[in-house]
Write a protein that binds this DNA or RNA. Structure first.
Lengths: 137, 137
DNA sequence: CTTGACCTTGAACTCAACTCTAAGGTTTAT
DNA sequence: ATAAACCTTAGAGTTGAGTTCAAGGTCAAG
């Protein structure tokens, strides 16, 4: 049985994060020591690894709650549910990437056109582009 | 002179947003009517357009504050300052895109491998991938 | 003169995922 | 026996960009 600090070090998260996940219903300590310390067993460690991995591929804590619900009772859930969650997250991620790519292109154009010199910003092409109605950036 | 609702409709933002920007020091109403209503003139409208455009290329409100400070007194600021803000935002944006692309690739792989069928999730490849130490996704 | 569409304020609330604080109890090593 | 390094709790704070609420004042039309 491991104390919270041990789990935290193993998985490179803070003890606060572990307590926070507990409050969020993601990971309960297996038992408490007589003094009230959280004690985790190997299966709790594995569950925390699952959470960390799911985060690493972009799932939110809310998504992870759903994944855990399924994982804990796989037999009464379908592959389709899991795939659906994954595809939904994929779509969201792609939409966000598209948005950021638009930002990236606009910012690139702005930066390229600007001399970036020490002289005054009176004729700065970036400011001008943001002022003018002609939003060609 | 325009009332807040007029500006809001013109620029497709809420009146709450305009009041919020005022609190943040981004855009003051030009004057107040005898009844205390905010009244904006054309230059305030132009400034709000600037803010909206700057947001549209990915600047945060904090960034926009800095841009406005420069814009209001261009003569005492350099092109370099503006370009620096832009490049900084560009770097941030690219970093975030990289992170999301990693998510995207992982999620794609997970989704591709999963049958997504109606059958139970007992052998779901997505769950298995997130459980196993072998993080090949 | 009243109805409806405006406008005002301050303050609290939202979301996500933590992080920090205060005030204390426990364990381990010396 | 005492100091260092753990652990506990409830609750507040953080970031960013707003949104919502309550309680009220104003303005134009009919």
């Amino acid at each position: 049985m491991y104390k919270i600090g041990h789990i935290a070090k193993q998985l490179n998260v803070s003890t606060d994060t572990l307590r926070y996940y507990e409050r969020q219903g993601l990971l309960q300590a297996s038992v408490r020591s007589p003094a009230g310390y959280r004690l985790y067993d190997d299966s709790a460690l594995e569950q925390m690894r699952f959470i960390v991995r799911a985060k690493a591929v972009g799932f939110s804590l809310k998504d992870i709650q759903e994944l855990l619900t399924i994982k804990i009772d796989k037999h009464n859930h379908s592959c389709e549910e899991v795939k659906s969650l994954t595809l939904q997250k994929l779509t969201q991620t792609r939409q966000r990437i598209e948005e950021l790519l638009k930002f990236e292109r606009s910012l690139s154009v702005l930066a390229e056109r600007c001399c970036g010199g020490e002289e005054s910003a009176d004729d700065c092409s970036i400011l001008t582009a943001l002022e003018d109605v002609d939003g060609s950036a």
